[in-house]
Amino acid sequence: MTRKISFSEAINEAMKLAMRKDENVILLGEDVAGGAAVDHLQDDEAWGGVMGVTKGLVQEFGRDRVLDTPIAEAGYIGASVTAAATGLRPIAELMFNDFIGSCLDEVMNQAAKLRYMFGGKAKVPLTIRTMHGAGFRAAAQHSQSLYALFTHIPGLKVVIPSTPQDAKGLLLSSIFDDDPVIFFEDKTLYNMKGEVEEGFYTIPIGKADIKREGSDLTIVAIGKQVHTALKAANMLADKGIEAEVVDPRSLSPLDEETILSSVAKTGRLIVIDEANPRCSAATDISALVADKGFDYLDAPIKMITAPHSPVPFSPVLEDLYLPTPEKVLKVVAEMIGDETIVTV
């Protein structure tokens, strides 16, 4: 059974189900409930998260399991690492992924490396949920997409859902995974609605999903850009070109097989990634195909990304900054040498 709920509600539901299933699952972060120790609130919340994603959890699970933290990311993210290593299964919310600057050591040098350094004698079942993405007019320190930073670090898993159904199943997998997972939520997707299964289900981390089948070219897109790819694919279909849209859903581990099989079928690859272009998910996926799938290619690989600049505040500049279906069509036109594609 499915019903239509939002991306935000799907994430909320995953946390609720996980907390019901396992008392070791706790949630901590800045204002995940809000109003801690305010007399007239008690187990009522003031916020339920800055975007309301954690609403209602404190009412059901109480303030012992839904912990508001001071604004001290190094403190509570670091504490989550060893809370995980010593028996809890924390979901730590890093409000914006940009705030990783305040706690990178705890993630990069502690969470990611404990198991390896200790010869496999520790595990860190920690999920860090964090908001990313441009398009919200939130300017340079609240709009980045920093998943490549974490993908670079062995020991971390990196998950980026693009639909409510994927978000719920992947978050449940992340919470019950025994390794540290960084779970990215695009803030501009929270209100997006989609069909979501009821009850507990998981989607395996490391398994890409083909969001649209096609035979003429492959578009691999990350997170919200899956929707840019799907829009472009529909526009291309009107011109008689069938694009296959592959959503990796996790960058670490990366489902190399699905990406390579798709390119083997279509002979062409475009990667859409709204993050900055250098040392990025886009370059990583392109390198994968250049390295292991060169013989499949009928045309050079193309990447559609943000430019190598911070995210600008002004709406006119931010709109130019992001990938669009029109940009995709332009690239496809060049790729197949048919300029008529971009004309409406």
């Binding site: 800045e30 204002d31 809000g34 109003g35 801690a36 120790a37 305010v38 003031a46 916020w47 800055v50 508001d68 933290t69 001071p70 604004i71």
Partner: peptide
Amino acid sequence: YAEATPFAYAS
């Protein structure tokens, strides 16, 4: 208040 969290709780 730090956002929605009282000073007395967080400090």
